[in-house]
């Protein structure tokens, strides 16, 4: 009974997270969903993952989201898009799939308690190896995406380029145009601006 109530609460929180108009509210509802999922996992006997879900899912991700929202600045509430037919369709589809599959669940097997650490590092060791690669890829991606560069200047240069010419041929002429602009000339020198200057006229 408790499980049923918790599940209904989880779905409710998830729904609020996706329909709320303020980003900050949505983030908090997401954290609540995460916490409820953590409690459900605890109920299931998966204590270790429940702790991780609470700390990473409900904690770290929420902090990151709030951090990003502060960096972006509090955006105006997104206009509420209500798609009732879509919601009803999704509910119907899920009910249909659940109805199809729930009776074909295999008979439960008694849980063999194994130490999680051994399973994690020995039985699924190659998963961990792949996961390390994945984390490094993620770090690279974030560093690359956020790398502080002169991108604002570059965006301007690009726009000027775009306006100055639609044909790529006239790049030599508009190089002089852009370097005339006072706020750009300084950063154009520090910014590695490709080989624009070297091109023959």
């Amino acid at each position: 009974m408790l499980t049923a109530i918790l599940i209904i609460l989880t779905v409710f929180c998830a729904l609020l997270a996706v329909v709320s108009t303020r980003l900050l509210h949505a983030t908090l509802w997401l954290a609540a969903t995460s916490a409820l999922v953590g409690i459900l996992l605890y109920q299931l006997g998966a204590w270790e993952i429940a702790v991780i879900e609470l700390s990473v899912g409900a904690g770290l991700v929420t902090v990151l989201m709030v951090f990003a929202i502060t960096m972006i600045g509090d955006p105006p509430p997104t206009p509420h898009v209500s798609r009732r037919t879509l919601l009803i369709f999704v509910i119907l589809a899920m009910t249909l799939i659940v109805g199809m599959t729930v009776n074909s669940l295999p008979a439960p097997v008694d849980v063999i308690t194994e130490p999680l650490g051994a399973v994690l590092w020995q039985v699924r060791g190659l998963d961990m190896a792949a996961q390390i690669v994945l984390i490094f890829a993620g770090v690279l991606g974030v560093l690359g995406l956020l790398s502080v560069s002169d991108d604002i200047v570059r965006v301007r240069v690009n726009r000027i380029e775009h306006q100055a010419s639609t044909t790529p041929l006239s790049s030599a002429t508009h190089t002089t145009q852009t370097s005339d602009a006072p706020e750009l000339s300084d950063s154009m020198q520090s910014a590695p601006s490709g080989r624009l200057e070297k091109e023959p006229v």
């Binding site: 792949a130 690279l140 991606g141």
Partner: peptide, 20 residues
């Protein structure tokens, strides 16, 4: 890509993509 910022991340990602 000469003159772009973050070349080392580009090539590192390229190798990672090959590995994965």
């Amino acid at each position: 890509l000469i003159g772009t910022v973050g070349e080392e991340k580009f090539y590192a990602s390229l190798l990672l993509m090959l590995g994965t």
